[in-house]
């Protein structure tokens, strides 16, 4: 039961959703709408709630063990703050909830992301070496793109941006396309294996 039932549900839902692609019948549309629009979205939201519940559980454990207590309390405070603000003032655009999003969350997120600019600079200095022919190609292309996408590039030489776009649109695109086709074929195979119950990692290895 713990293994067979999920496998059966996976098989049925997979086959039904695959077959509905080939049908325009109202019943097929209804099934498709119900599963994708109603069920899928709700279950997905629950998975997120479970994630949050798990985070709370771990954080509370940390607090009781006095491990990173202050930081855990701050994280928990932030987690509680948002729903409390939403309860007090709603979530409309002028609410305290949105204020917290725009003045606390958004600036911090953008700043954390911008730290990468510094790490990229440091890594480029330390590790970006023309050690071999492939590494030299990588380095040369990166330098070309860095120059070629600058507004001053075309004033130095018109062929710099042209060459940049040529590399991007043809050889680079061809390699990316190969990766994409590989991912496409791999995803299809995995999807088939999942539906047929051969791939069971989502059942925690059972």
């Amino acid at each position: 039961m713990p293994t067979r039932l999920p496998l059966l549900i996976c098989l049925v839902s997979g086959v039904v959703m695959f077959l509905q692609y080939f049908s325009r019948h109202p019943v097929a549309k209804l099934i498709y709408q119900t599963v994708t629009n109603d069920w899928w979205q709700v279950i997905f939201a629950f998975t997120l709630i479970v994630g949050v519940a798990s985070f709370i559980k771990i954080t509370l454990r940390k607090i009781s063990q006095k491990k990173d207590k202050t930081y855990s309390l701050i994280a928990l405070g932030g987690l509680i703050l948002m729903p409390v603000l939403a309860l007090i003032g709603g979530t409309n655009i002028e609410s305290p909830f949105q204020w917290a999003f725009e003045n606390l969350l958004a600036p911090m997120q953008a700043t954390v992301f911008s730290l990468l600019a510094f790490f990229v600079a440091s890594a480029s200095f330390r590790g970006f070496r023309a050690r071999s022919i492939p590494a030299a190609i990588l380095l040369g292309t990166a330098l070309l793109v860095l120059i070629g996408r600058l507004p001053i590039a075309e004033h130095i030489s018109e062929s710099i941006p042209d060459l940049t776009f040529w590399i991007k649109n043809y050889p680079s695109m061809a390699a990316r396309r190969a990766i994409l086709i590989g991912i496409g074929l791999g995803s299809m195979t995995t999807a088939l294996r999942v539906i047929l119950g051969i791939e069971r990692t989502y059942l925690s290895g059972k």
Binding site: V120, A121, S124, F125, R126, G127, F128, R129, L143
Partner: peptide, 8 residues
């Protein structure tokens, strides 16, 4: 960044 890469 270009200068950093070249110096490196």
């Amino acid at each position: 960044l270009i200068v950093m890469i070249i110096i490196g």
